[in-house]
Nucleic acid binder design. Structure first.
Lengths: 202, 202
DNA sequence: TGCAAAATGTGAGGAATCCTCGTATTTGTC
DNA sequence: GACAAATACGAGGATTCCTCACATTTTGCA
């Protein structure tokens, strides 16, 4: 992940492995006991290192949560980029976008801890901007694609639409995994219809 | 507000006034210093009471934040109910809904502290369900209206659509007030178009 | 290899915060 | 005024984040 958040650059392989172990254990703790139960002391203990060592790898708790969230973001960004790459014409857009959302939803359903990691992000004032930042990145991916397909469109309008659609996609996923299964599916379906209409009609 | 959250039922007028003072001061602190800076000690001091007295009115910090959020919710629910009440036919829906969203957005813009109060809710694991609960309530209001206007529609589909539209409305507002002014306006406009299309076409 | 310097590891404890609980004060009733 | 009930108080217990002075390991070099 990026380096500004790491107290010490992981120069040795052992360090990188240790950082990985820390994040894996953090994910486990969150999965087992919820996003609010992440304690630096327990994280150190599970990883088999002391508190002091933990703080040599991460300057503070925020950095751990941020690293977790960035792991998730990398995955979802890859999923989105891959899905968008298959869009070569406006005709493809509807089916490709629907497939993308399905994949995205499947990821959320398969790893419920993603939602808890996001809760941990929300709980941290310093990290709450990550949500918008991530929406912006994903929105930019979509906007690029749309502009290539619709050169005549108003760029600003396309930017706004793309940002909104991606942001609300995130919001829909989190809502969908918060409710019982069939209802969540219906919500995702409704989102797909809504988003696709917005994207495919001027 | 409701009583389960109050440690002591405000039987006397003085008590109710004091609860009001506590919430007003809490809002001020959040407005001035951000949602993460709400400290029970400072809240007591500003209100001119001791920590112990503060905890006689609210069992814990969550309860204070919850009360703040419920105040906001009451306002927004009233705004939504009022807006929906003017919808008497499917033809009205588009203009009435647009007006409703404009009013809602104006409230958010006028009182930025609303967003910070919501951040405080997000920061509290025990309160995070409030978001979905509120979306459900607002979704139900909208669903009722839609069912009255479209008796032929699939009730489950209407429920899902209404819930999604209201939840994403909240998400749009929070995104819109998080970005610079003209961009936020464009996002709200895009949301309005998207939601109205979803609501007015089968 | 042997040794000094640099890197890394350690955990007691400082600091901030939430909340409790025993005591003090005020209010209400006769 | 005297008693009881309600309310107010704030020192301090409990939890958690994080620091820092010191211990240990690894690295670089003769």
């Amino acid at each position: 992940m990026n380096d500004t958040q790491m107290r010490r650059a992981p120069s040795q392989k052992r360090s990188r492995e240790r950082v990985d172990a820390i994040l894996t254990n953090a994910t486990q703790i969150i999965a087992e006991t919820g996003s609010d139960a992440l304690r630096m002391s327990e994280l150190a203990q599970r990883t088999g290192i002391s508190i002091g060592s933990l703080y040599q790898y991460f300057p503070d708790k925020s950095a751990v949560v941020r690293a977790l969230a960035e792991r998730c973001n990398e995955d979802s960004r890859a999923c989105i980029a891959e899905g968008l790459a298959t869009v070569t014409s406006m005709d493809d857009l509807a089916t490709a976008f629907a497939a993308l959302i399905d994949t995205y939803y499947a990821i959320f359903l398969g790893e419920p801890v993603i939602r808890d990691i996001w809760s941990a992000v929300q709980a941290d004032g310093a990290l709450r901007v990550m949500e918008v930042e991530e929406s912006r990145r994903n929105g930019a991916l979509l906007a690029d694609r749309l502009k290539a397909l619709q050169p005549a469109g108003d760029p600003q309008k396309i930017d706004a639409t793309a940002l909104l659609v991606m942001h609300l996609g995130e919001a829909t996923m989190r809502l969908a995994v918060s409710v019982a299964r069939p209802e969540g599916d219906a919500l995702v379906e409704a989102y797909k219809r809504m988003a696709i209409r917005q994207l495919t009609t001027p």
